[in-house]
Computed example of a mutant assay.
Amino acid sequence: MTDSNQPAVRGINMAQDKAVFEKQKEQMAGGKGFIAALDQSGGSTPKALRQYGVEEDEYNGEEEMFGEIHKMRTRIITAPDFTSDKVLGAILFERTMRGEIEGIPTAQYLWEKRGVVPFLKIDKGLEEQASGVQMMKPMPGLEALLDEAAQDFGIFGTKERSVIHEADAEGIKQIVAQQFEVGRKVIAAGMVPILEPEVSIHSESKDEAEKMLEEALRVQLDTLAEGEDIMIKLTIPSTPGLYDGLADHPRVVRVVALSGGYSTDEACERLSKNHKMIASFSRALAEGLSKKQSDEEFNALLGSSIDKIYQASL
């Protein structure tokens, strides 16, 4: 972990800044554990709160809604088992990045108090489906957001999601090209992007789409120069080991898996067959957690889920 007396703002001390970044990168590349996805936003927030036992009539308006989700995330992050012993990184929503935990900016708290590397979700949602895929919506102000994340909050990397529904080769090439276009902007801002071209687990052509995706990713990876390093977040493949070659590519820091709607048990069982992927779970991590649980009950259940996901990621 970093010294809690040191400033969190990247760029204040360039030597320290680079040293912290390299330490975080080393942790993400070779550490044992998984990434916690705590980045529900917009339309997914009410659903996440309902799963946590908070109904829509318990808050009024967007501010109170995001206040409730921040309380949930704070409870997760401050739980005894949420440390770098098993959790390597955490993906945050913009409001969470700008919020605080125990009076400390969230990203700073994650790294200094928990040893967990902070990431930021940067996409603005999905376009309507076309050519079997949903591209990312435009991201106005992206460069300013990236600068803020890196310089003001010490964010290590980003995550951006798009979705593949069908095995349409042209659509998949387009979605991968867009991911790399955004990824290069993240790299230029001094961070490591997590590219997330998700394949829907409900796709009738999931296996075929994943093989097309693997090929499209390999083609784009070979266009990256030395030092242009990325991570990739993918649906757990129907063919175990499909993405092993991507994980071995010199430009790939790590390949991580999304739970995609699978239950915690099924996601972990599927992930355990893919030895070069680690988890980056959202709903599966928070499964069963409730606002109404005592701290003892909450921490015990979360600790059990963390251990289960950790074991599947080894």
Rank of each mutant, 00 (worst) to 15 (best):
K233G: 10
R50I: 07
E94F: 13
P80E: 11
A169F: 01
D3F: 09
P237L: 01
I155R: 06
R184S: 02
V87E: 00
L145V: 14
G30S: 10
D207A: 15
E143R: 07
A144W: 10
A8T: 14
Q6K: 14
G157A: 13
P240K: 00
C268T: 15
L258W: 06
M1H: 12
H165D: 08
I101T: 10
E297R: 00
F156L: 06
A29L: 04
A257I: 03
S290R: 14
T2D: 11
V9Q: 15
D17S: 13
G245D: 04
V87C: 07
S203C: 08
E58Q: 15
P250W: 00
L142Q: 08
S203L: 09
I194T: 13
K211F: 11
F82Y: 04
G67S: 13
H249S: 00
Q151W: 09
S272P: 06
Y243H: 12
I155C: 04
S263R: 00
E226F: 00
I187A: 01
Y310W: 10
I122Y: 11
F298G: 02
K211P: 04
P105Y: 10
R254I: 09
R50D: 08
R75I: 04
I278V: 14
K32F: 06
D265H: 10
M139W: 12
F281H: 02
I104A: 07
V256W: 05
R283P: 00
A188F: 01
F180L: 09
R95C: 12
L88A: 07
L142W: 11
V199F: 04
L242M: 03
M139R: 03
R95Y: 13
S280L: 05
M212F: 15
L246Q: 10
E26P: 00
L224F: 10
V176E: 14
A247T: 10
N13A: 05
D17Y: 08
A144Y: 02
P118K: 02
